[in-house]
Design a protein around this nucleic acid. Structure first.
Length: 888
RNA sequence: GGGCGGUUAGCUCAGGGGUAGAGCACCGGUUUUACACGCCGGCUGUCACAGGUUCAAAUCCUGUACCGCCCACCA
């Protein structure tokens, strides 16, 4: 036992306990144990810098679960790690180089990679330190990085296997290309934004000179690559034109006129220019009609030689110039304002260009079908369940996945090309030479970073080897992640996990919300509303921060980080701290072990009530956590600790602590038991402060023992369960009565401005002595909590105009306030109360006299209404008496 | 165009068939020996709008409006 400091100093306390937990190996999974398994993987943060507030939520919620399960006796594996984050990390380092006026090409591939590794090392340190500050109870001994050799081996194994199954192929298709990053992107990496643009109507003259057809386009510069003009097959307007040839302006190329179902006759002129090399729809049309695909924009976003006079010009520059030229030639028929969706690079915001390019793809349909199947069979469950639809819709409409990136940072594609023949060797190990004897060159591209993330749940456990971890912890029990990476990550893990690890990667996915600022705005650096979790932790401590996140984590709702709430929960931590100090200073010096709680049957009603509530609370918290209702659990704990335990029980128990002998011993035993249970229930949410307090309190030698040591930690103590022997509805009823009486007296005192220093003697009036017995037994509690001189009982109290009378159930509470009470004001008050009662009673009577209600409503509801009506009736009679005697 | 969520006290949000809750803010009292980051008391709402189902709707259904998010091959 130790004393607690006056205030909780999280800055010094938190790191101390985290180090202690690590030293004890408290977070280490124990594959050799016979305990039931609970496993999770941490969504690996990108090693691009530091954790933001969204990460904080996605560490806190699983940490609550991990700590809770660990305390329940599960063998918990929570596997941490980081993601190399190919394009994101490369961009960060390239930006650093740019400040030195360098590009990655100045360094060369090898030196550049070394430079990235340097950055990664530093960033990794920042991230893991942040995780420790947050209290994340991960198993650091199993930490992984997506570029670890063992994970890279898994990547190669998967690539080669899919290639052999023809589920990975290489080909030339239209892909989304970022001219700034100079790499291909997957569909998901293209962010579409509605943009105000222009719709240009351009006349394409017929080759034989007279007239022409007007087409509409938002991207005139691509017309230089047009190879046809298309109309809908049923479009009457163009019936006669099928034989005519069109001469493309500027370039002068003669192009065909085609009919295709794709064309919407309602849009524009019903005629559309076809550019197979720069538009996905046109690409498809081009295939259907065997059109040539002419690339007029290159990988840097500049016009190619095919663009004739525009060669070398930037695509947007070319657009402006071309429109001018068309206008000058009288071919620009009109320009309309037009809002349309423009694709931007997720990482650098540059406008993405559809380009014809040779890339590697995953043929996704077969993988997606199985991923749909397993969710349909409920092998994996989404919570909240409505995310299932989002997942299903995406999986159903999925397109092949472009997995090659023209980057330097990432897993090199395990494909080699022969210099001498056209052979492509795809192999896990570096091949020495081609079968033809020619020398081989490895593909210079790397894989999409999500390709390796998609293997995370099993690659981290040693796959493709058959490891003990894999056998024991895969499939994982639960994944907690935010909804913004359902497609990027969750869906890919499902497809690859089912295919390669032989089972779903997780049985349940809990999808969290995104964290926004106090006004519900998405946090972004440009808006300047980004909240740094470390700053918050510094200010209010990790515990208060975590508790706030938990309390605000209502399913399906994005979280607005409200300052008021943060502050309120910081004060909650303070409340816990001070209540604990109170408990500690009341303990006898000699007490070294937490004493057993006496059988509840003979205890005072306040103890019985508190034990009952403690038991009930364990049930409530357990249920809430089972349902991932972190918000409900936090709210219940907050209310129970503060407004039941601290406000009532601790206050009620104070006189007992002043006593001696059994009365005091009993109070201490119950107080300690309940306090200990609260700490354990709270620990998953606020690990640091609870450990600090728990360590200071007396406990039993067997509590929370770390493996092979005598050292104890609340982290390994048992999570409280309901205790059926403590069920006691009678005690609840009595304490509620006490609370009503006390509150009534307090309210009267407050209403009439009676200072706490003025002790009054209150008389409780009830018709029969047997009725007041229960109050008399607890008279000291009432006296204490209502600041009374004393409490007396009588079957009749003489009426006195200077005494305020209030009705509580079947009691009348007489509060003498000579010299204070203004009778007309008191009359007003009583009348107001009476009016309220009459209104309530009228509404109840109306209901009860409605035959339909009595016949159709549930009997319990009817009974309840009857009882209430009666009680109000009695109350009303008494108030009317009081009013009459007041002369009202 | 499709999908999802939201609209409850001044603010941030719970709740969810029987007649409204929390934190913060606000008002009054209070330094009672754990806590003024406290204690005690109080005030605050046609639960977005319109229909419907029901004995009973803030709660279920339908529609409308507004806000937000996601998806989509809107030349």
């Amino acid at each position: 036992m130790r004393e607690l400091t006056k205030v909780f100093e999280h800055a010094t306390v938190d790191p101390k306990w985290y180090a202690y937990w690590e030293e004890l190996g408290a977070f280490r999974a124990s594959p050799a144990s016979d305990r039931p398994v609970f496993s999770m993987v941490l969504p690996p943060p990108n090693v691009t810098g530091w954790l933001h507030i969204g990460h904080a939520l996605n560490q806190t919620l699983p940490d609550i679960v991990a700590r809770w399960k660990r305390m329940q006796g599960y063998d918990v594996l929570w596997l941490p790690g980081t993601d190399h984050a190919g394009i994101a990390t490369q961009n960060v380092v390239e930006k650093q180089l740019a400040k030195e006026n360098k590009t990655r090409h100045d360094l060369g591939r090898e030196a550049f990679e070394a430079r990235v590794w340097e950055w990664v090392k530093q960033s990794h340190g920042t991230i893991t330190s942040q995780m420790r500050q947050l209290g994340s109870s991960v198993d650091w001994s199993r930490e992984r990085f997506t570029l670890d050799e063992s994970l890279s081996r898994a990547v190669r194994r998967v690539f080669v296997t899919l290639y052999k199954e023809r589920l990975i192929y290489r080909g030339t298709y239209l892909v989304s290309w970022c001219p700034r990053c100079r790499t291909a992107l997957s569909d998901l990496e293209v962010v579409h934004k509605d943009t105000a643009g222009k719709l240009y109507r351009i006349r394409y003259p017929y080759a034989d000179g007279d007239g022409g057809v007007v087409v509409a386009t938002t991207r005139p510069e691509t017309m230089l690559g047009d190879t046809a003009v298309a109309v809908h097959p049923d479009d009457e307007r163009y019936r006669a034109l099928s034989e005519r040839v069109i001469r493309l302006p500027v370039i002068g190329r003669e192009i065909r006129f085609i009919r295709d179902e794709f064309v919407d006759p309602e849009f524009g002129t019903g005629a559309v220019k076809v550019t197979p090399a720069h538009d996905p729809n046109d690409f498809e049309m081009g295939r259907r009609h065997e059109l040539a695909a002419i690339s007029v924009i290159d990988e840097d976003g500049k016009m190619t030689a095919e663009a004739g006079p525009y060669v070398g010009r930037d695509r947007f520059d070319a657009r402006r110039a071309l429109v001018e030229q068309l206008d000058a030639e009288g071919l620009l028929v009109g320009v309309d304002e037009h809002i349309h969706s423009v694709g931007h690079c997720q990482r650098c915001r540059a406008v993405v260009e559809p380009l014809l390019s040779t890339q590697w793809f995953v043929k996704i349909r077969p993988l997606a079908d199985r991923a749909l199947e397993v969710v349909d069979q409920q092998k994996t469950r989404f919570v909240p369940a409505n995310w299932t639809r989002t997942y299903n819709d995406w999986m159903t409409n999925i397109h092949d996945w472009c997995i090659s990136r023209q980057l330097w940072w990432g897993h090199r594609i395990p494909a080699w090309y022969c210099d001498d023949c056209s052979e492509i060797v795809v192999s896990e190990e570096t091949p020495s030479a081609c079968a033809c004897g020619g020398s081989l060159r490895q593909d210079t591209d790397v894989l999409d970073t999500w390709f390796s993330s998609g293997l995370w749940p099993f690659s981290t456990m040693g796959w493709p080897d058959s490891t003990r971890d894999l056998a024991r912890y895969y499939p994982t029990t639960l994944l907690i992640t935010a909804h913004d990476i359902i497609f990027f990550w969750v869906a890919r893990m499902m497809m690859l996990g089912v295919r390669f690890a032989g089972d779903v990667p997780f049985k349940t996915v809990y999808i969290t919300s995104l964290v926004r600022d106090a006004h519900g705005q998405k946090m972004s650096k440009s808006k300047g509303n980004v909240v740094d979790p470390l700053k918050l932790i510094g200010e209010i401590g990790a515990d208060a921060f975590r508790f706030t996140l938990a309390a605000l984590a209502s399913p399906g709702m994005d979280i607005s980080l409200s300052e008021g709430r943060l502050c309120g929960y910081r004060q909650f931590i303070n409340k816990i701290w001070n209540a604990s100090r109170f408990v500690l200073i009341n303990l006898p010096e000699t007490l070294t072990e937490r004493p057993a709680v006496p059988r509840s049957a003979g205890l005072d009603v306040i103890h019985r009530w508190m034990l009952h509530r403690a038991s009930e609370l364990a049930d409530e918290i357990g249920t809430a956590l089972e349902e991932f209702r972190f918000d409900v659990a936090a709210d219940r704990l907050y209310h129970a600790f503060w407004h039941e335990y601290a406000d009532w029980y601790i206050e009620l128990v104070k006189p007992h602590l002043q006593a001696e002998g059994t009365r005091r011993d009993t109070a201490i035993a119950v107080l300690l038991e309940v306090h200990d249970r609260f700490l354990r229930l709270l620990h998953p949410f606020i690990p640091f402060v609870t450990e600090e307090i728990w360590q200071a309190l007396p406990r039993r030698p067997e509590d929370g023992r770390a493996v092979d040591t005598s050292r104890q930690t609340i982290t390994l103590a048992r999570f409280p369960e309901p205790v059926s022997e403590w069920d006691d509805s009678e005690a609840v009823d009595v304490v509620e009565l006490l609370q009503e009486v006390i509150t009534t007296i307090r309210t009267v005192r407050s209403e009439w401005g009676v200072p706490p220093s003025r002790k009054v003697t209150v008389v409780i009036e009830a018709s029969f002595e047997s009725e007041w017995e229960v109050l008399r037994t607890n008279a000291d509690s009432i006296t204490h909590l209502a600041s009374l001189e004393s409490l007396e009982f009588a079957d009749h109290v003489p009426r006195d105009p200077d005494t305020v009378r209030r009705v509580v159930r079947n009691f009348q509470v007489h509060i003498p306030l000579a010299g204070i009470v203004d009778r007309s004001k008191e009359t007003e008050r009583v009348r107001k109360n009476l009016n309220k009662l009459v209104k309530q009673r009228e509404s109840l009577r109306a209901r009860l006299s409605n035959r339909a209600f009595v016949e159709r409503a549930a009997p319990a509801v009817v009974d309840e209404a009857r009882a209430k009506e009666q009680a109000i009736g009695q109350h009303q009679v008494k108030l009317e008496q009081i009013l009459a005697e007041l002369g009202g």
